[in-house]
Design a protein around this nucleic acid. Structure first.
Lengths: 213, 213
DNA sequence: CATATTATATGACAAGCTGTCACATTGTCA
DNA sequence: TGACAATGTGACAGCTTGTCATATAATATG
Protein backbone atom coordinates (compact mmCIF):
# COMPACT_ATOMS: atom_id res chain seq x y z
CA UNK A 1 0.00 0.00 0.00
CA UNK A 2 1.17 3.51 -0.79
CA UNK A 3 1.99 5.58 2.30
CA UNK A 4 -0.25 8.26 3.77
CA UNK A 5 2.22 10.83 2.47
CA UNK A 6 1.27 9.77 -1.04
CA UNK A 7 -2.42 10.32 -0.40
CA UNK A 8 -1.66 13.68 1.23
CA UNK A 9 -0.04 14.89 -1.96
CA UNK A 10 -1.65 17.75 -3.88
CA UNK A 11 -3.95 16.31 -6.52
CA UNK A 12 -1.91 17.59 -9.46
CA UNK A 13 1.29 16.06 -8.25
CA UNK A 14 -0.33 12.74 -7.48
CA UNK A 15 -2.06 12.67 -10.82
CA UNK A 16 1.14 13.41 -12.69
CA UNK A 17 2.93 10.64 -10.81
CA UNK A 18 0.18 8.15 -11.59
CA UNK A 19 0.14 9.10 -15.23
CA UNK A 20 3.89 8.74 -15.44
CA UNK A 21 3.70 5.32 -13.86
CA UNK A 22 0.93 4.26 -16.21
CA UNK A 23 2.86 5.32 -19.25
CA UNK A 24 5.84 3.31 -18.05
CA UNK A 25 3.71 0.21 -17.44
CA UNK A 26 2.18 0.67 -20.86
CA UNK A 27 5.66 0.75 -22.39
CA UNK A 28 6.98 -2.41 -20.72
CA UNK A 29 5.90 -5.10 -18.26
CA UNK A 30 6.46 -4.51 -14.54
CA UNK A 31 9.69 -6.39 -14.24
CA UNK A 32 11.27 -4.24 -16.94
CA UNK A 33 9.78 -0.96 -15.79
CA UNK A 34 12.25 1.56 -14.46
CA UNK A 35 11.63 3.73 -11.42
CA UNK A 36 14.18 6.14 -12.85
CA UNK A 37 11.91 6.68 -15.85
CA UNK A 38 8.83 7.21 -13.74
CA UNK A 39 10.37 9.82 -11.46
CA UNK A 40 11.98 11.59 -14.39
CA UNK A 41 8.61 11.91 -16.10
CA UNK A 42 6.83 12.88 -12.90
CA UNK A 43 9.54 15.34 -11.96
CA UNK A 44 10.04 14.04 -8.44
CA UNK A 45 13.16 12.88 -6.69
CA UNK A 46 14.18 9.32 -6.05
CA UNK A 47 13.90 9.83 -2.31
CA UNK A 48 10.31 11.00 -2.61
CA UNK A 49 9.35 7.95 -4.59
CA UNK A 50 10.47 5.71 -1.77
CA UNK A 51 8.59 7.87 0.67
CA UNK A 52 5.36 7.13 -1.20
CA UNK A 53 5.88 3.50 -2.19
CA UNK A 54 7.71 0.54 -0.74
CA UNK A 55 8.93 -0.44 -4.17
CA UNK A 56 7.90 -0.78 -7.79
CA UNK A 57 5.40 -3.54 -7.04
CA UNK A 58 3.68 -1.44 -4.41
CA UNK A 59 2.94 1.21 -7.01
CA UNK A 60 2.05 -1.32 -9.67
CA UNK A 61 -0.51 -3.27 -7.69
CA UNK A 62 -2.03 -0.07 -6.42
CA UNK A 63 -2.64 0.98 -10.03
CA UNK A 64 -3.85 -2.43 -11.14
CA UNK A 65 -6.35 -2.74 -8.34
CA UNK A 66 -7.64 0.79 -8.89
CA UNK A 67 -8.32 -0.17 -12.49
CA UNK A 68 -10.21 -3.29 -11.45
CA UNK A 69 -12.22 -1.64 -8.71
CA UNK A 70 -15.00 -0.27 -10.84
CA UNK A 71 -15.39 -3.61 -12.57
CA UNK A 72 -16.30 -5.28 -9.31
CA UNK A 73 -19.09 -2.83 -8.65
CA UNK A 74 -21.01 -4.03 -11.69
CA UNK A 75 -21.34 -7.62 -10.69
CA UNK A 76 -24.23 -7.48 -8.28
CA UNK A 77 -26.25 -5.45 -10.73
CA UNK A 78 -25.57 -7.98 -13.44
CA UNK A 79 -26.64 -10.85 -11.24
CA UNK A 80 -29.98 -9.14 -10.60
CA UNK A 81 -30.49 -8.35 -14.24
CA UNK A 82 -29.95 -12.01 -15.15
CA UNK A 83 -32.47 -13.33 -12.62
CA UNK A 84 -29.72 -14.89 -10.52
CA UNK A 85 -28.19 -16.86 -13.37
CA UNK A 86 -24.61 -17.08 -12.19
CA UNK A 87 -23.09 -18.18 -15.47
CA UNK A 88 -24.85 -15.61 -17.59
CA UNK A 89 -23.91 -12.86 -15.15
CA UNK A 90 -20.26 -13.89 -15.08
CA UNK A 91 -20.21 -14.13 -18.85
CA UNK A 92 -21.59 -10.67 -19.32
CA UNK A 93 -19.17 -9.45 -16.69
CA UNK A 94 -16.29 -10.79 -18.72
CA UNK A 95 -17.75 -9.41 -21.92
CA UNK A 96 -18.10 -6.01 -20.29
CA UNK A 97 -14.51 -6.18 -19.19
CA UNK A 98 -13.31 -7.01 -22.69
CA UNK A 99 -15.23 -4.24 -24.41
CA UNK A 100 -14.51 -1.65 -21.74
CA UNK A 101 -10.83 -1.87 -22.59
CA UNK A 102 -11.55 0.72 -25.16
CA UNK A 103 -8.45 2.76 -25.77
CA UNK A 104 -5.16 1.42 -27.05
CA UNK A 105 -3.19 2.43 -24.00
CA UNK A 106 -5.49 0.65 -21.59
CA UNK A 107 -5.11 -2.46 -23.71
CA UNK A 108 -1.33 -2.30 -23.66
CA UNK A 109 -1.36 -1.94 -19.91
CA UNK A 110 -3.51 -5.05 -19.58
CA UNK A 111 -1.40 -6.89 -22.12
CA UNK A 112 1.73 -6.24 -20.09
CA UNK A 113 -0.13 -7.40 -17.00
CA UNK A 114 -1.52 -10.53 -18.62
CA UNK A 115 1.52 -11.79 -20.48
CA UNK A 116 3.70 -11.35 -17.43
CA UNK A 117 1.11 -12.50 -14.99
CA UNK A 118 2.33 -13.81 -11.70
CA UNK A 119 0.22 -15.37 -9.03
CA UNK A 120 -0.29 -11.96 -7.51
CA UNK A 121 -1.58 -10.47 -10.73
CA UNK A 122 -3.87 -13.41 -11.22
CA UNK A 123 -5.21 -12.94 -7.72
CA UNK A 124 -6.02 -9.34 -8.46
CA UNK A 125 -7.97 -10.33 -11.53
CA UNK A 126 -9.61 -13.27 -9.82
CA UNK A 127 -10.79 -10.98 -7.05
CA UNK A 128 -12.73 -9.15 -9.71
CA UNK A 129 -14.93 -12.19 -9.95
CA UNK A 130 -14.68 -13.82 -6.57
CA UNK A 131 -13.72 -11.14 -4.09
CA UNK A 132 -16.92 -12.25 -2.50
CA UNK A 133 -15.54 -15.63 -1.58
CA UNK A 134 -13.06 -13.99 0.78
CA UNK A 135 -15.43 -11.86 2.80
CA UNK A 136 -18.15 -14.01 4.26
CA UNK A 137 -20.87 -11.38 4.42
CA UNK A 138 -20.18 -10.12 0.93
CA UNK A 139 -20.26 -13.68 -0.26
CA UNK A 140 -23.63 -14.36 1.31
CA UNK A 141 -25.04 -11.18 -0.15
CA UNK A 142 -24.11 -12.56 -3.56
CA UNK A 143 -25.10 -16.18 -3.02
CA UNK A 144 -28.48 -14.96 -1.87
CA UNK A 145 -29.02 -13.51 -5.32
CA UNK A 146 -28.03 -16.66 -7.14
CA UNK A 147 -30.73 -18.87 -8.51
CA UNK A 148 -29.56 -22.21 -7.15
CA UNK A 149 -32.52 -24.12 -8.53
CA UNK A 150 -30.89 -23.96 -11.87
CA UNK A 151 -27.53 -25.30 -10.72
CA UNK A 152 -26.44 -28.88 -10.28
CA UNK A 153 -25.23 -28.47 -6.71
CA UNK A 154 -25.01 -31.24 -4.17
CA UNK A 155 -22.58 -29.83 -1.59
CA UNK A 156 -22.19 -26.39 -0.03
CA UNK A 157 -18.72 -25.98 -1.53
CA UNK A 158 -19.93 -26.72 -5.04
CA UNK A 159 -20.99 -23.11 -5.48
CA UNK A 160 -17.50 -21.85 -4.71
CA UNK A 161 -16.06 -24.37 -7.12
CA UNK A 162 -18.36 -23.19 -9.87
CA UNK A 163 -17.27 -19.63 -9.21
CA UNK A 164 -13.67 -20.69 -9.44
CA UNK A 165 -14.08 -22.79 -12.54
CA UNK A 166 -15.72 -20.02 -14.47
CA UNK A 167 -13.33 -17.31 -13.40
CA UNK A 168 -10.36 -19.53 -14.13
CA UNK A 169 -11.69 -20.18 -17.61
CA UNK A 170 -12.42 -16.49 -18.12
CA UNK A 171 -8.96 -15.50 -17.04
CA UNK A 172 -7.36 -18.12 -19.20
CA UNK A 173 -9.44 -17.02 -22.13
CA UNK A 174 -8.13 -13.51 -21.56
CA UNK A 175 -4.56 -14.76 -21.59
CA UNK A 176 -5.16 -16.69 -24.78
CA UNK A 177 -6.82 -13.73 -26.43
CA UNK A 178 -3.95 -11.46 -25.47
CA UNK A 179 -1.19 -13.87 -26.46
CA UNK A 180 -2.72 -14.83 -29.79
CA UNK A 181 -4.15 -11.42 -30.56
CA UNK A 182 -7.72 -12.66 -30.95
CA UNK A 183 -10.57 -10.21 -31.47
CA UNK A 184 -13.14 -9.67 -28.74
CA UNK A 185 -15.59 -11.76 -30.71
CA UNK A 186 -13.27 -14.67 -31.31
CA UNK A 187 -12.38 -14.71 -27.63
CA UNK A 188 -16.02 -14.58 -26.54
CA UNK A 189 -16.97 -17.38 -28.92
CA UNK A 190 -14.26 -19.65 -27.63
CA UNK A 191 -15.28 -18.79 -24.09
CA UNK A 192 -18.91 -19.55 -24.81
CA UNK A 193 -18.05 -22.90 -26.28
CA UNK A 194 -16.17 -23.86 -23.11
CA UNK A 195 -19.00 -22.61 -20.93
CA UNK A 196 -21.59 -24.53 -22.89
CA UNK A 197 -19.57 -27.68 -22.46
CA UNK A 198 -19.42 -27.37 -18.71
CA UNK A 199 -23.03 -26.26 -18.48
CA UNK A 200 -24.33 -29.48 -19.94
CA UNK A 201 -21.41 -31.63 -18.72
CA UNK A 202 -18.56 -33.10 -20.66
CA UNK A 203 -19.73 -36.67 -20.01
CA UNK A 204 -22.89 -38.10 -21.49
CA UNK A 205 -25.57 -38.58 -18.90
CA UNK A 206 -26.01 -42.27 -19.69
CA UNK A 207 -22.35 -43.22 -19.26
CA UNK A 208 -21.89 -41.04 -16.20
CA UNK A 209 -24.54 -42.71 -14.12
CA UNK A 210 -23.37 -46.17 -15.00
CA UNK A 211 -19.74 -45.35 -14.34
CA UNK A 212 -19.80 -43.56 -11.07
CA UNK A 213 -18.73 -45.61 -8.10
CA UNK B 1 17.58 -22.45 -27.20
CA UNK B 2 21.10 -22.93 -25.88
CA UNK B 3 23.79 -22.73 -28.56
CA UNK B 4 25.55 -25.70 -30.14
CA UNK B 5 28.63 -24.69 -28.16
CA UNK B 6 26.73 -25.50 -25.00
CA UNK B 7 25.86 -28.99 -26.20
CA UNK B 8 29.45 -29.55 -27.32
CA UNK B 9 30.68 -28.97 -23.81
CA UNK B 10 32.31 -31.83 -21.92
CA UNK B 11 29.66 -33.60 -19.87
CA UNK B 12 31.14 -32.64 -16.50
CA UNK B 13 31.24 -28.97 -17.28
CA UNK B 14 27.73 -28.95 -18.67
CA UNK B 15 26.41 -30.85 -15.69
CA UNK B 16 28.07 -28.50 -13.23
CA UNK B 17 26.61 -25.52 -15.05
CA UNK B 18 23.12 -27.02 -15.02
CA UNK B 19 23.36 -27.86 -11.34
CA UNK B 20 24.49 -24.35 -10.52
CA UNK B 21 21.59 -22.91 -12.47
CA UNK B 22 19.14 -25.21 -10.74
CA UNK B 23 20.35 -24.26 -7.31
CA UNK B 24 19.94 -20.59 -8.19
CA UNK B 25 16.40 -21.14 -9.48
CA UNK B 26 15.62 -23.07 -6.34
CA UNK B 27 16.85 -20.16 -4.25
CA UNK B 28 14.79 -17.45 -5.98
CA UNK B 29 12.35 -17.02 -8.87
CA UNK B 30 13.75 -16.33 -12.35
CA UNK B 31 13.40 -12.60 -12.29
CA UNK B 32 15.49 -12.39 -9.14
CA UNK B 33 18.05 -14.98 -10.18
CA UNK B 34 21.53 -13.65 -10.79
CA UNK B 35 23.73 -14.80 -13.64
CA UNK B 36 26.70 -13.71 -11.56
CA UNK B 37 25.79 -16.32 -8.95
CA UNK B 38 25.38 -19.07 -11.50
CA UNK B 39 28.71 -18.54 -13.21
CA UNK B 40 30.50 -18.16 -9.89
CA UNK B 41 29.15 -21.52 -8.75
CA UNK B 42 29.83 -23.18 -12.08
CA UNK B 43 33.28 -21.66 -12.30
CA UNK B 44 32.88 -20.27 -15.78
CA UNK B 45 33.37 -16.77 -17.09
CA UNK B 46 30.69 -14.28 -17.90
CA UNK B 47 31.63 -14.32 -21.58
CA UNK B 48 31.20 -18.08 -21.76
CA UNK B 49 27.74 -17.87 -20.31
CA UNK B 50 26.63 -15.60 -23.09
CA UNK B 51 28.23 -17.94 -25.61
CA UNK B 52 25.97 -20.74 -24.39
CA UNK B 53 22.74 -18.86 -23.72
CA UNK B 54 21.04 -15.82 -25.13
CA UNK B 55 20.09 -14.67 -21.66
CA UNK B 56 18.78 -15.88 -18.33
CA UNK B 57 15.41 -16.88 -19.78
CA UNK B 58 17.05 -19.01 -22.43
CA UNK B 59 18.71 -21.08 -19.74
CA UNK B 60 15.63 -21.12 -17.55
CA UNK B 61 13.19 -22.39 -20.12
CA UNK B 62 15.67 -24.96 -21.30
CA UNK B 63 15.78 -26.35 -17.75
CA UNK B 64 12.03 -26.13 -17.23
CA UNK B 65 11.22 -27.96 -20.43
CA UNK B 66 13.78 -30.66 -19.72
CA UNK B 67 12.06 -31.25 -16.42
CA UNK B 68 8.65 -31.53 -18.07
CA UNK B 69 9.78 -33.74 -20.92
CA UNK B 70 9.54 -37.05 -19.14
CA UNK B 71 6.07 -36.17 -17.89
CA UNK B 72 4.76 -35.95 -21.41
CA UNK B 73 5.95 -39.43 -22.26
CA UNK B 74 3.60 -40.96 -19.74
CA UNK B 75 0.40 -39.62 -21.15
CA UNK B 76 -0.24 -42.04 -23.99
CA UNK B 77 0.36 -44.98 -21.69
CA UNK B 78 -2.09 -43.56 -19.21
CA UNK B 79 -4.74 -43.10 -21.86
CA UNK B 80 -4.44 -46.74 -22.86
CA UNK B 81 -4.53 -47.94 -19.29
CA UNK B 82 -7.77 -46.01 -18.71
CA UNK B 83 -9.55 -47.44 -21.78
CA UNK B 84 -9.48 -44.07 -23.52
CA UNK B 85 -11.12 -42.18 -20.69
CA UNK B 86 -9.69 -38.72 -21.26
CA UNK B 87 -10.62 -37.25 -17.92
CA UNK B 88 -9.36 -40.14 -15.85
CA UNK B 89 -6.10 -40.20 -17.77
CA UNK B 90 -5.56 -36.48 -17.35
CA UNK B 91 -6.39 -36.73 -13.68
CA UNK B 92 -3.90 -39.49 -13.06
CA UNK B 93 -1.38 -37.53 -15.12
CA UNK B 94 -1.76 -34.59 -12.78
CA UNK B 95 -1.65 -36.84 -9.73
CA UNK B 96 1.53 -38.43 -11.02
CA UNK B 97 3.02 -35.01 -11.52
CA UNK B 98 2.18 -33.97 -7.97
CA UNK B 99 3.59 -37.05 -6.32
CA UNK B 100 6.65 -37.22 -8.55
CA UNK B 101 7.80 -33.89 -7.13
CA UNK B 102 9.42 -35.93 -4.46
CA UNK B 103 12.40 -34.07 -3.10
CA UNK B 104 12.31 -30.68 -1.43
CA UNK B 105 14.53 -29.00 -3.98
CA UNK B 106 12.42 -30.06 -6.92
CA UNK B 107 9.42 -28.62 -5.11
CA UNK B 108 11.07 -25.28 -4.50
CA UNK B 109 12.01 -25.06 -8.14
CA UNK B 110 8.41 -25.64 -9.16
CA UNK B 111 7.18 -23.23 -6.51
CA UNK B 112 9.36 -20.48 -7.91
CA UNK B 113 8.09 -21.31 -11.36
CA UNK B 114 4.45 -21.40 -10.35
CA UNK B 115 4.22 -18.33 -8.15
CA UNK B 116 6.00 -16.21 -10.72
CA UNK B 117 4.34 -17.81 -13.68
CA UNK B 118 4.19 -15.82 -16.84
CA UNK B 119 2.39 -16.76 -20.00
CA UNK B 120 5.51 -18.50 -21.20
CA UNK B 121 5.80 -20.64 -18.10
CA UNK B 122 2.14 -21.51 -18.31
CA UNK B 123 2.60 -22.52 -21.93
CA UNK B 124 5.40 -24.86 -20.94
CA UNK B 125 3.21 -26.53 -18.38
CA UNK B 126 0.20 -26.59 -20.66
CA UNK B 127 2.27 -28.31 -23.30
CA UNK B 128 2.68 -31.13 -20.82
CA UNK B 129 -0.98 -31.83 -21.28
CA UNK B 130 -1.77 -30.61 -24.75
CA UNK B 131 1.46 -30.63 -26.70
CA UNK B 132 -0.55 -32.85 -28.92
CA UNK B 133 -2.87 -30.08 -29.96
CA UNK B 134 0.02 -28.31 -31.68
CA UNK B 135 1.32 -31.14 -33.82
CA UNK B 136 -1.47 -32.51 -35.98
CA UNK B 137 -0.20 -36.07 -36.28
CA UNK B 138 0.63 -36.33 -32.59
CA UNK B 139 -2.83 -35.01 -31.86
CA UNK B 140 -4.53 -37.57 -34.04
CA UNK B 141 -2.49 -40.33 -32.47
CA UNK B 142 -3.93 -39.26 -29.15
CA UNK B 143 -7.49 -38.56 -30.25
CA UNK B 144 -7.57 -42.02 -31.80
CA UNK B 145 -7.06 -43.46 -28.34
CA UNK B 146 -9.80 -41.43 -26.75
CA UNK B 147 -13.12 -43.07 -26.11
CA UNK B 148 -15.41 -40.44 -27.59
CA UNK B 149 -18.56 -42.43 -26.96
CA UNK B 150 -18.33 -41.38 -23.38
CA UNK B 151 -17.99 -37.68 -24.09
CA UNK B 152 -20.67 -35.12 -24.73
CA UNK B 153 -19.22 -33.83 -27.97
CA UNK B 154 -21.20 -32.20 -30.73
CA UNK B 155 -18.53 -30.32 -32.67
CA UNK B 156 -15.01 -31.27 -33.77
CA UNK B 157 -13.49 -28.50 -31.68
CA UNK B 158 -15.23 -29.65 -28.52
CA UNK B 159 -12.49 -32.17 -27.87
CA UNK B 160 -9.80 -29.49 -27.91
CA UNK B 161 -11.91 -27.39 -25.58
CA UNK B 162 -12.25 -30.25 -23.15
CA UNK B 163 -8.49 -30.71 -23.23
CA UNK B 164 -8.01 -27.04 -22.51
CA UNK B 165 -10.62 -26.85 -19.77
CA UNK B 166 -9.11 -29.72 -17.84
CA UNK B 167 -5.52 -28.60 -18.21
CA UNK B 168 -6.45 -25.07 -17.23
CA UNK B 169 -8.16 -26.36 -14.12
CA UNK B 170 -5.23 -28.64 -13.33
CA UNK B 171 -2.75 -25.82 -13.69
CA UNK B 172 -4.83 -23.51 -11.59
CA UNK B 173 -5.18 -26.16 -8.96
CA UNK B 174 -1.40 -26.40 -8.92
CA UNK B 175 -1.10 -22.67 -8.42
CA UNK B 176 -3.61 -22.74 -5.59
CA UNK B 177 -1.89 -25.67 -3.94
CA UNK B 178 1.46 -23.92 -4.16
CA UNK B 179 0.24 -20.56 -2.97
CA UNK B 180 -1.79 -21.88 -0.08
CA UNK B 181 0.58 -24.71 0.80
CA UNK B 182 -2.05 -27.43 0.44
CA UNK B 183 -1.07 -31.09 0.73
CA UNK B 184 -1.17 -33.33 -2.33
CA UNK B 185 -4.37 -34.87 -1.03
CA UNK B 186 -6.13 -31.60 -0.36
CA UNK B 187 -5.20 -30.41 -3.82
CA UNK B 188 -6.38 -33.59 -5.48
CA UNK B 189 -9.66 -33.52 -3.61
CA UNK B 190 -10.40 -29.98 -4.67
CA UNK B 191 -9.45 -30.87 -8.22
CA UNK B 192 -11.71 -33.91 -8.20
CA UNK B 193 -14.64 -31.87 -6.98
CA UNK B 194 -14.20 -29.44 -9.87
CA UNK B 195 -13.84 -32.26 -12.35
CA UNK B 196 -16.95 -34.00 -11.08
CA UNK B 197 -18.90 -30.79 -11.49
CA UNK B 198 -17.94 -30.38 -15.11
CA UNK B 199 -18.35 -34.08 -15.82
CA UNK B 200 -22.03 -34.01 -14.95
CA UNK B 201 -22.57 -30.38 -15.91
CA UNK B 202 -23.07 -27.38 -13.69
CA UNK B 203 -26.63 -26.86 -14.89
CA UNK B 204 -29.44 -29.23 -14.15
CA UNK B 205 -30.51 -31.14 -17.20
CA UNK B 206 -34.13 -30.02 -16.92
CA UNK B 207 -33.42 -26.29 -16.79
CA UNK B 208 -30.77 -26.46 -19.47
CA UNK B 209 -32.99 -27.88 -22.13
CA UNK B 210 -35.78 -25.50 -21.44
CA UNK B 211 -33.50 -22.47 -21.36
CA UNK B 212 -31.35 -22.88 -24.37
CA UNK B 213 -32.28 -20.81 -27.34
C1' DC C 1 55.58 -30.31 -38.89
C1' DA C 2 54.12 -25.53 -39.29
C1' DT C 3 50.81 -22.56 -40.23
C1' DA C 4 46.05 -20.97 -41.03
C1' DT C 5 41.49 -21.14 -39.48
C1' DT C 6 37.99 -21.80 -36.54
C1' DA C 7 36.02 -22.59 -31.87
C1' DT C 8 36.04 -21.43 -27.26
C1' DA C 9 37.29 -18.77 -22.99
C1' DT C 10 38.12 -14.60 -20.44
C1' DG C 11 37.34 -10.47 -17.46
C1' DA C 12 37.25 -5.47 -17.74
C1' DC C 13 33.83 -2.36 -18.98
C1' DA C 14 29.78 0.93 -19.90
C1' DA C 15 25.44 1.70 -18.72
C1' DG C 16 21.85 0.69 -16.17
C1' DC C 17 19.38 -0.53 -12.04
C1' DT C 18 17.70 -0.28 -6.78
C1' DG C 19 17.26 1.24 -2.06
C1' DT C 20 19.42 4.26 1.54
C1' DC C 21 20.81 8.13 4.01
C1' DA C 22 22.54 12.59 5.60
C1' DC C 23 20.96 16.73 4.66
C1' DA C 24 17.84 20.76 2.90
C1' DT C 25 13.51 22.62 2.59
C1' DT C 26 8.82 23.44 3.70
C1' DG C 27 4.75 23.47 6.75
C1' DT C 28 2.47 23.86 11.25
C1' DC C 29 1.58 25.03 15.79
C1' DA C 30 2.78 27.62 20.32
C1' DT D 1 9.79 34.07 16.27
C1' DG D 2 11.27 29.51 17.49
C1' DA D 3 10.69 24.57 17.51
C1' DC D 4 9.15 20.47 15.79
C1' DA D 5 7.33 17.51 12.35
C1' DA D 6 6.58 16.44 7.58
C1' DT D 7 8.36 16.28 3.19
C1' DG D 8 11.84 16.69 -0.57
C1' DT D 9 16.52 15.88 -2.42
C1' DG D 10 20.41 13.75 -5.04
C1' DA D 11 24.80 11.55 -4.27
C1' DC D 12 26.05 7.05 -3.25
C1' DA D 13 27.24 1.89 -2.66
C1' DG D 14 26.45 -2.10 -4.53
C1' DC D 15 24.29 -4.68 -7.41
C1' DT D 16 22.74 -5.90 -12.23
C1' DT D 17 23.25 -7.03 -17.47
C1' DG D 18 25.25 -7.70 -22.12
C1' DT D 19 29.42 -6.57 -25.02
C1' DC D 20 33.88 -6.74 -26.81
C1' DA D 21 38.82 -6.86 -27.56
C1' DT D 22 41.83 -10.10 -26.47
C1' DA D 23 43.87 -14.77 -25.26
C1' DT D 24 43.92 -19.51 -25.65
C1' DA D 25 42.81 -24.08 -27.31
C1' DA D 26 41.44 -27.25 -31.02
C1' DT D 27 41.28 -28.52 -35.60
C1' DA D 28 42.28 -28.46 -40.59
C1' DT D 29 45.30 -27.85 -44.39
C1' DG D 30 49.48 -27.34 -47.31
Amino acid sequence: MPSQTFFNLPVDKRKKLIESAESEFIRVPVFEASIANIIKMAGISRGSFYQYFEDKDDLYFYLLEEKLKEMKIHFIGLLERHDGDLVDALMEMYCYFLTSLSDEEEKKFIKNAILYTTYRVESSFASMFDAYVEKKEEFEKVTGLINKERLNISEETDLIHIFKIISTLAFNNLIEKTAKGLTDNEAMESFEQSINLIKRGIYKQSYKEGDEE
